[in-house]
């Protein structure tokens, strides 16, 4: 954080995205035998992976986010909670520049990604490059109408990986990382559309993990799933925490309490309260937070 001043002088392009050329000091991705060793090297308290500063976001004249300031802890789960329309998803989507395709939207402030000190919402950053490093999983599983293998390999092919053996290896690693390998390992070339809802969602997580993102954004990833599939995804997210920073939007209060390390409560586009999940759910400081998580009308 002491190198903030370097941010402007950094090359505008995010650092190279080849899977084998990750910045050092960080495990390349999910799965793999070395990941736990790498993760255990990390000492507590967690480092800040990204810092959101005075972030405001406009849909035309409508200011959907108002001066948000949050540190995102490295390899921890940060949950965003709040009533519908409070800006959680809008906030999440800022991280991978999903708003850019919509006309009339505008960012203010910054989301600084460490250790490179790049501003994710800076004008001179290529959104495609941002999305390569920040994966996203949506509320509804959206696999491509292709085989399971091709779904996961898609992002890797986009990056120019063509060697079949290498692809197969990466796909297996991603599927293992998403706790799906045991279930689909023997039918990789069947259509992904034939999977169950929970499996599809884990496939989407595997697809996101294949390109070895540094941050994984999850927008209500379990809201369309049954309790068993939900439990599997929650378990998966807790395991993923060893390798990737997770930012999750959820409407399920118990889910946020169970899986998150840090929780942010948003209301009407503002950040009301942010803190360790244990404290937010047992002893929130703000009445608005209290009313929301206890299910009161304020």
């Amino acid at each position: 954080m002491n190198a903030v001043s370097h941010a402007v002088t950094e090359p505008a392009r995010l650092s190279d995205t080849g899977p084998t050329q990750r910045p050092s000091g960080r495990q390349p991705g999910p799965g793999g035998s070395g990941s736990s060793v790498e993760a255990s090297r990390e000492t507590r308290p967690p480092k800040v992976r990204a810092e959101v500063r005075n972030l405001s976001f406009y849909y035309g004249q409508n200011r959907a986010l108002k001066d948000i300031n949050i540190p995102i802890a490295d390899r921890q789960v940060t949950a965003l909670i709040g009533p519908s329309g409070c800006g959680k998803s809008t906030f999440l989507r800022c991280f991978n520049r999903m708003h850019d395709l919509q006309v009339g939207t505008r960012y203010e402030g910054s989301i600084t990604l460490y250790p490179e000190n790049v501003d994710l919402v800076g004008r001179d950053i290529d959104p495609i490059e941002v999305r390569m490093r920040i994966g996203m999983v949506f509320q509804k599983a959206n696999p491509f109408p292709k085989s399971i293998f091709e779904n996961v390999a898609y992002g890797l092919r986009l990056r120019g990986m063509t060697r079949r053996s290498l692809l197969a290896e990466e796909v297996e690693q991603a599927l293992r990382g998403a706790a799906l390998w045991e279930e689909v390992g023997d039918r990789l070339h069947e259509s992904a559309m034939a999977l169950s809802g929970g499996q599809m969602q884990r496939l989407c997580i595997a697809r996101a993990l294949a390109t070895k993102p540094e941050i994984l954004l999850c927008d209500e990833p379990t809201s369309a799933l049954d309790p068993i599939a939900t439990a599997k995804i929650e378990e998966l997210i807790s395991t993923l925490r060893a390798q990737v920073t997770v930012l999750i939007v959820t409407h399920n209060m118990q889910q946020a309490a169970r899986i998150s390390d840090y929780t942010a409560f948003m209301y009407l586009g503002e950040l009301i309260e942010f803190g360790q999940a244990g404290r937010i759910f047992t002893n929130p400081a703000k009445k608005a937070t209290e009313d929301y998580i206890t299910g009161r009308y304020g």
Binding site: P45, P46, V48, P71, F274, G275, R279, A285, K286
Partner: peptide
């Protein structure tokens, strides 16, 4: 009397 509404120094990731 009340915990802070945002991360206290001890709570904040470094």
């Amino acid at each position: 009397p009340r915990p802070p509404a945002v991360l206290s120094a001890t709570e904040r990731p470094q």
